[in-house]
Simulated assay, not measured.
Amino acid sequence: MAAITGPITGEAKNTVAEVLQGALVDLIDLSLVAKQAHWNLVGPHFRPIHLQLDEVTSLARTHMDEIAERAVALGINPDGRAATVARSTKLPQPDGGWLEDGKVVATMTDLLDGISKRMHERVHTTEEPDPVTQDLLIAVAQEIDKQHWMFQAQR
């Protein structure tokens, strides 16, 4: 099978590949953590947090597909396998069992803060080697920052 090649090569391609893979892992695990919290949430603020967790899951799933497809367009193999995500994630994992709404808000605030910081670093890293990838990451960062603000406001 012929390899797919893209518009960037060399060290620029390696830099962008690392950035895209990190973003992909963050987004895949964000979708999983948000769904886990969504399914196990309890407390007086259940309904709005339950719905907000669905929003987070949806944005993560949409953007992880865009990130993976950008990688492929550049001739980079995205790796979204469960073992890869488990081995490389930087996201704190929620406790098992029922999750009290206040704890979910705190966990999601902290988790989104970490993702936001990494996305902003990725935006900076891709400015020179690939402005198209940078543009995708800016869109992700914008939505992550919005969700971070919305969870933080509930603390």
Rank of each mutant, 00 (worst) to 15 (best):
G80W: 04
E55G: 11
G114L: 08
V105K: 06
N77E: 14
V140Q: 05
D101R: 10
A82Y: 12
H120L: 11
E69A: 03
T107M: 11
D130G: 08
T125M: 10
L59P: 02
T133K: 03
D145E: 11
Q152F: 03
G102N: 10
A68D: 04
A139N: 12
I67C: 05
V104S: 01
E121C: 04
S116G: 05
S116K: 01
L74D: 01
M64I: 00
A71F: 06
M64Y: 09
H124Q: 15
V104Q: 01
V123Q: 07
L136C: 11
L137R: 12
L99E: 03
V140A: 13
G75W: 09
T62I: 07
A60Y: 10
N77K: 15
L99R: 10
I76N: 03
A141E: 11
L112G: 03
T133A: 06
G80C: 10
G97I: 09
S88C: 15
I115H: 00
A68T: 06
K117H: 04
P131C: 03
D110N: 06
Q52S: 07
I144G: 00
K90E: 12
Q52A: 12
A82R: 15
M119L: 10
G75Q: 07
Q152A: 13
L53Q: 07
V85F: 12
E66G: 02
W149N: 10
N77F: 13
L136G: 09
L136V: 11
A153M: 06
R122C: 04
K90N: 12
L51N: 11
T57F: 10
I76A: 06
D145T: 05
D54M: 02
P129Y: 14
D130N: 12
G114S: 06
E127I: 11
Q142W: 07
L111C: 08
P94L: 08
